[in-house]
Amino acid sequence: MTMPQGTIFDIKRFAIHDGPGIRTTVFLKGCPLRCSWCHNPEGQNPDPEPAMPVVAVPDSSERSPDEIVGRVLEVEDVVKELESDILFFDESGGGVTFSGGEPFAQPEFLDALLDACRTRKLHTCLDTSGYAPAELFALFRDRVDLYLYDLKLMDDAEHQKYTGVSNRSILDNLRTLDELQRKVVVRFLVIPGLTDTEDNISATLGFLASLRNLRDVSLLPYHRIAAEKYRRLRRKNEMEGLSPPSDEVMKSLRTRFESCGMKVTIGA
């Protein structure tokens, strides 16, 4: 049997905001969603693609050639990189996080990676939009130690408008995870004027209240780091000019989520 290949756009070591401890995060390329505020736009296209380089060729008047974002890798290449920091994982209670893009968009590759982690007893986190068929979700359930699960908009029409897909399977999959008592941290994206409206907040809290076990919520404020990525990819940044939410807004949201019985962190 040949080990499957996959396309990734980054492997980030010393990832300290993607789950417990010191982690290595694998960013899988390709995503079925097209969120207007996407902060990893290089994760959307499933194939490697050109982008302007981060560092220009020094002392050269010529335009610096583009670099390719995204690599096709064998599972064992990824695993070798994951094993590099095992001592750091051990010391800190860390492990591996799969992010994207949407990891479920490369199911065979993810399947093999999760297997490899299980064999090596590496703690695994899955950073997901939750957008995947229920059967696929079920397939991986026992090999994921912690889900980082994004919630955006509760109104399905709005969700379709700003992400390109319906939120139905997203909410269903989360409900299933909750029923099965899996470890989940919900990541609620605070996009000023879009997700922090009164309607969306109360709908989100209402949904969370209907869950039996889930209590951990991260409030992720919108930030501008992606602007440079859009420029390098020569793509339009739909959020151009949008300011991050103020600390006061974040604090009041925190209070509101906490008053509904949630355990809240801001930023990770």
């Binding site: 401890g21 010191i22 001592l87 750091f88 010391e91 800190s92 860390g94």
Partner: peptide
């Protein structure tokens, strides 16, 4: 953050 930095140092020293 302090704890993670501490883990980093402890690992280097290991």
């Amino acid at each position: 953050g302090i704890a993670k930095m501490a883990h980093l140092i402890r690992t280097y020293f290991r």
